[in-house]
Design a protein around this nucleic acid. Structure first.
Lengths: 132, 132
DNA sequence: CAGCATCCGGTACGATACTG
DNA sequence: CAGTATCGTACCGGATGCTG
């Protein structure tokens, strides 16, 4: 089964929701963010991402193929032995990656506020549970 | 089981990855985008989102609770009969929603490019499959 | 090294029924 | 109306083994 069919299975959505899903997907975010700095080889990318979260080779492959199909990632397979494949961002992919990084960066900046909000929420829930 | 435990099940991630997951989640995106314009009641929000994609009441509840816990959404439950609950964005949530909308808007703008990229990708795959 | 094929468990999600 | 509780299922994603 090809890449196209896989993601298309998630039906009932307008097409740009689908693209948004791709770039904001669990591994899509990390791949785009990494490639924003420089190009990477496959395993290199895997190890780089592993520093943040553990990604299986299958998921990395799938993510890269999806992003390549959408025109965000360029795949450069050199016909050498052992095989060498470099991944980089296309201009379109760069636009996407910048926005994704902006969002990701924002979550980092506001993390403290979120933490406090959560504590307040949990506390109020705990209280109202206590008086029942 | 409470909201906190549910999402925390997805472990092995740094905390801000988790927040990013929340705001970019399938329904989180749509909720934030909708609330950016005005406040909504529960079913009203459900119907509004339904115009774009079908969301089950369960998922909408879960999404709203998660976003509320993170401090993005304010829940205003009026003690009347029949019940009336209004949802709106907090200042923090507004910041998030604006960035999410920016990304969503961008996918809309670049949709044509993505479509062309996909066709080119599928075509080249079809060709190389043909000569085997 | 860079993948692909296959199997498989956990969970995300939807459908339904029920409550205040 | 605005949820909660429960159940069934699809599929996401990890583990393993194999190929060029």
């Amino acid at each position: 089964m090809g890449v196209s069919e896989k993601w298309t299975m998630v039906e009932g959505m307008c097409p740009q929701r689908l693209v948004l899903e791709h770039v904001t997907s669990r591994w899509g975010v990390l791949v785009l963010d990494a490639l924003l700095d420089r190009s990477y080889r496959f395993s290199e990318l895997r190890r780089g991402i592993a520093a943040v979260a553990k990604v299986s080779e299958k998921m990395l492959t799938q993510t890269l193929q999806t992003l390549e199909r959408d025109g965000f990632v360029h795949r450069d397979a050199k016909p050498v032995i052992p095989p060498r494949v470099d991944y980089s961002l296309t201009p379109l992919g760069r636009e996407a990656a910048e926005r994704v990084r902006a969002l990701a960066h924002w979550t980092g900046v506001r993390m403290e506020d979120v933490q406090r909000a959560r504590e307040a929420y949990d506390e109020s829930k705990r209280l109202e549970a206590a008086l029942k």
